[in-house]
Each structure stands twice: as structure tokens, then as C-alpha cells.
Design a protein around this nucleic acid. Sequence first.
RNA 1: GCGAGCAUCGUCUAACGGUUAAGACAUCGGUUUGUGGUACCGAGAAUCAGGGUUCAAUUCCCUGUGCCCGCCCCA
Length: 494
Amino acid sequence: MSQKKVKLLKKQILKKMDKKTTKVKAAKAVIVAKKSLKPVAGKAKGKIRPQVEEEILMQPPRGMRDLLPGDQPYWDQLRRVVSRMALEYGFQRIDTPAVEYANLFIRSIGGGTDIVDKEMYIFNSKGGDKLSLRPELTAGIVRAYIQHGMNVLSKPVKLFSIGPVYRYDRPQEGRYREHFQANFDAFGEQDPILDAQLIQLAHRVVTSLGIKNVQFQINSLGCPKCRKEYQELLVAYFESKKQKLCLNCKRRLETNPLRILDCKEDKCIQVAELAPQSVDRLCPDCRVHFKNILEYLDELDLPYVINPRLVRGLSYYSKTVFEIWSNDEDGKKHSLGGGGRYDYLVEQLGGEHTPAIGFGLGLDRLVAEMKRVHAKSYTGPKPKVFLAQLGDLAKKKSLRIFAELQKNGILVAESFGRGSLKSQLRVADRVGVEITLIIGQKEALDETVIIKDMTSGTQETVTNEKLVNAVKKILKNNVVISHSDELKIKEDGE
RNA sequence: GCGAGCAUCGUCUAACGGUUAAGACAUCGGUUUGUGGUACCGAGAAUCAGGGUUCAAUUCCCUGUGCCCGCCCCA
């Protein structure tokens, strides 16, 4: 193809682009989508919404949300702290699928729990498999632990994971159908010091984020032996008071009697207050285990209260269970996470007997809490250089110079799509760069670049070869500011 | 699953039942086209949907939908 032909083609394309057709179409499309989503919803009868192929609902499904750029500094900070703490405590990262066979969750979390009975996203694959979006992280991690024979690794095997989990529930403040959790699990160690260490870890993660006003609630459910005895005692007690319980709890008496302790209905609370407590019915082993943990926590000065009615919504727990709560200035409490021992889950899912303990943190809630207490967020390095171009020739050269600077570790901002130098400088100003590089027609021909100091307004012209060094030198001279900036970032990570 | 509240430009707000549906912030463009923060000018951008009452509905009523909050439960 001749150069003329190429140029002609380019001209035609440019001409087309010039008509702003894309912009207009895009705008119209949005409106169409916006308008159409309402009628579709409006015509819907009942719960099943007819999905017309062309319709695009301009919103995510219920309970799902976008994490917008403005919030990302908090999430970044959160991920940094979690990764840092995981490293300190010897946890290695594992990622498991968001989708597993539904039975994995049903068997681990247990029937009779709300999670399994009404909050699971269960669906059939095209192949006919019954699958589910994970409602929590531990089950998948245990599955992976067994499947990959991690029992041969030196104990304890410590794994952490971060990812989305899904629960079909009515959304409200701090509760989403898709939310993110960080999960820490330690396998193969039954010593109570692990329990205490994980609670310490949870505490350090939360406080490192700047969330200060936290408290743990802790309880022991006992091992299967003493738990069974206790449960029988409990059922006997509640049977005698059955008529005073709420409807839900009457049902729980059959399905999940422990949860009656956790009921928020006034009448049930009254009954539950006088109920036998699991901590009083622990077998000698479990009693010592629990006592040891409390001693460790006292030694660590961790703020905790024993809550004999703490049960938790997953039935695989044994012995230790705990939750982390924060208080806001109005005295309102927010649950940030929780966990406990599950010494029998691994064998229950087909592995060898492996004592284990873990906990999860609700990241969406941690972010909300960080905002509430105005905690530090992490913003990455900002560009201190802006590259402006003027004219066709300069424009063509700009991408190469841009990449050249980036390769040399100089972060460069730009707004190549803009035509006038004025508008580009305006953007440069908004970005807050220290210097702006300007390539015009003249500079492009001369193989030079204008360096403009944005604070003083002075400019100098350098050749392309000297550009990188010249920029580096200027930035270095301004090091007083940038150096302290970097220190700040490092402190943020603590 | 149950209950309450809310619904206007991207965001925040305004409009006795009668307005070309207003303003601010943000966005984009411009102020003689090669120089930024301010200022000035301009542009685009909304009444959730359907039905009813009415001469007239953003406004009143009903239904639906959505959002949000609380309960249950959880993170």
C-alpha cells in the first residue's frame, strides 16, 4: 500500500470520527437503556421479571454493588494490611473458586442453619451438577487442603484467602449479597495458643486499620462429647419452657437448639438467660482449653467478654467461637468478623482428623468502619510529570516519549485526546504535577522537549536524549517533598 | 421472609395543581486558535414505570419497580 493510500484511509477515518457520531450514539444508548429498564420492571408481574434480550438494566442485581475508584484507597490499604499481617503470622495465600458443589457447603455449614436453608445461591450447571456460589470461604479452603494433601506439610498449615462470598439475603447497611471476606485458617494444631494467636491476629488487623474501639466476644461450645450432653440438657430445659419461646425458636428446638440462645426476641432472651451455659458443662479437656485461651488473652491485654450465648451461624464449630465487634460514637455495635475452632470438619469432609481454627473478616464492614473513624487510606504514587503535545507530528512522537519516560521509572500523566495546549495544561494543573513536558510542531522537528516548571512557570528546552536525565534531576531537587511523602506511605502500611 | 421511609440532570438541591422543570457542584468547549490554578461566556444533562383524579400532574391517589433503613440472620 502506498503512503498516499494510507493517508487517504486515515483521512476518511478521521473524518468519520469527527462527526461525533460515537458520542451521540453512546448517549442515546444510555437513555434507551435507562428508560427501558423501567417499563420492563413495571410490566413485571410477580417476582419473575421477563428478560427481553435487548434490554440492559443499568444497575447491578440486588445486593451487588460497584466498588468505585473513590473507595479503592481504602480497599488498597485493607489489602495491604491483611497481606502484611498474613506474612507476619506465617499465613500463605490460597484462592479457591467462587463456585463449588453445593453439597460441600451443605455438609460443612450444616442444615438447619440460615445460610444453608435460605441464603445459598444454588443453581444447576448445564451438565446437571448442583453448584453454589460460596457463602463463606472456609469450606472451599478445607476442600483444597484435603484434595491437595496439605496434611503432609509441616503443621500448623496456615492459609489465608481474600475474595467475594455470596448470600441471598435482604440488603441493608453493611450487608450485601456479594461481599468480601478475608479468611485465616490454621490446620493441624490443637494447642489453645493457636486460638489466642488468631484472636491476636484479628485484633492486629483491625487496629492496624485505625479501628480502635473493638471488643471480642468469646465462648466455648465444647467438643462433640460434652456438647452432646450439654445440648440434651439444653433441649430438656427449653422443652420445659417451650410455650414461652417465639415461633422460630420452637422450630429451632428440633433443628438447631443452640441458636435459641442467640435469639433476639425479648421472651426468648428471658428464657435463655436462665438456660444452662455451655461453659459450665465443658468436659475437663475443653474446660482447660478454654481457660488457657482466656489466660493468654489476659496476658495480651486483649479486650474481650465471655458471651455464654454466642453460638454462631455455622454448625461446624467446636470449642472456641469468637466474634469481633466495634463500637461507634453512638454506642452502636458493628460485627466485623468472627470465627472459631472446627476440629472435626476436616475429617467430616473426608480428610484425616485435623484440629483447625479460623476466622473471617467482613471487608465491606471494615471499609465502612475505616471511613467512620477517618482511618488512613492508601493512595499509590502520583505522577509528577505531565506530557502535553501540540500538532500532528508531536502527537505521533508523544507515545514513544511517554513510554520512554515510564520505562525509566518516571510516572507520567497525559491527556493526549485533547487538542489545545491550554486544556492540557489545565488538566496538568488538576493532576498536580511538578513539571509539564511540552512537544509542539517545532520541538518535534528539532527532537527537543520543553520542560516547564509548574510552580515557577519557567521553562527550558532540552534534547530528547537528555530528557530523561533532566527530568530526573529536577524531580530529585524537589526531593524534600517527595521523600517525606514516601515515608508517609510506609507508615500508612503499618 | 416481615415492617417502615424515600424516588427530579452524573451529584446535591428547587419548583401554591398551570415554569421553556430552576440553581449549585462536576463534565466538556470557548474568551483571536503555542502556555495552567482565578474570572467571564456557552453546551450537554433529569421528573422511575403504568394507570387514575383534573381543563391541567414533578406535585394528589392506586399499582408495580427500585433504593434505603430496621427485624430475622450474618460478615
